[in-house]
């Protein structure tokens, strides 16, 4: 298993190592995607839970008018996948697309569930991760409802991870619920 440090960082605050958690480190497979490849398609069940080794991926839904509505991104070191489809074992409502050439490692639902049985400390990790997820989603919802386009742009740029600055602006604009033209104008004002 060549991605031990990556997994150890991704699953902080747990102190994981192959000697104490052999089953956890066993069940990972490396996969590669070209730019524009779909990792998961809308209408197909998500069968994996991913950790990103490299690259940027976008998760989006197709709106009624056929436009992509970006819900979030994953990038180096973060978790990825269509989590609700994965847990509910139901078809995904979203697309997960590699926006840049991407390498990810992945595990299955059976393996994922087994961690919580084999290693009780994963319940602590689960609590922390889901708290962060919930708080992040609430913050984003509040930003979308209460902030102007410029405020949303400024807030995003302040916390924007470096890899996201390399992807096409239309994805960032969609994530911030603004047109690519508005995004471009705000970006030029900033620089």
């Amino acid at each position: 298993m060549q991605h031990i440090p990556l997994l150890q960082r991704a699953f902080q605050p747990l102190d994981l190592n192959p000697a104490s958690h052999p089953e956890f480190f066993k069940g990972w497979e490396e996969v590669q995607f070209k730019r524009s490849d779909f990792i998961t398609e809308s209408g197909v069940r998500e069968r994996h839970f991913y950790v990103v080794v490299s690259g940027v991926q976008a998760i989006y839904i197709i709106g009624n008018n056929g436009d992509k509505k970006v819900i979030g991104f994953s990038f180096d070191g973060s978790f990825s996948g269509v989590y609700d489809s994965f847990l509910e074992e139901s078809p995904s409502h979203y697309f997960l697309e590699a926006l840049t050439p991407s390498t990810l490692i992945r595990t299955t639902l059976d393996d994922y569930n087994s961690w919580f049985t084999l290693y009780p400390e994963f319940n602590y990790w689960g609590r922390i991760v889901h708290q962060h997820l919930l708080i992040g989603r609430v913050k984003r919802e509040i930003e979308l409802i209460t902030m102007t386009a410029k405020e949303r742009f400024d807030a995003f740029i302040e916390r924007c991870p470096a890899p996201l600055l390399t992807i096409p602006q239309k994805y960032l604009a969609s994530y911030l619920n603004m047109t690519p033209e508005t995004f471009s104008r705000l970006r030029s004002l900033k620089s």
Binding site: F38, E41, S42, G43, V44, I62, G66, K68, P91, F95
Partner: peptide, 13 residues
């Protein structure tokens, strides 16, 4: 307009 993502979604359906 024809949009490939929508086609894929419909084929999966």
């Amino acid at each position: 307009h024809i949009k490939p993502e929508i086609q894929i979604e419909r084929i999966n359906a």
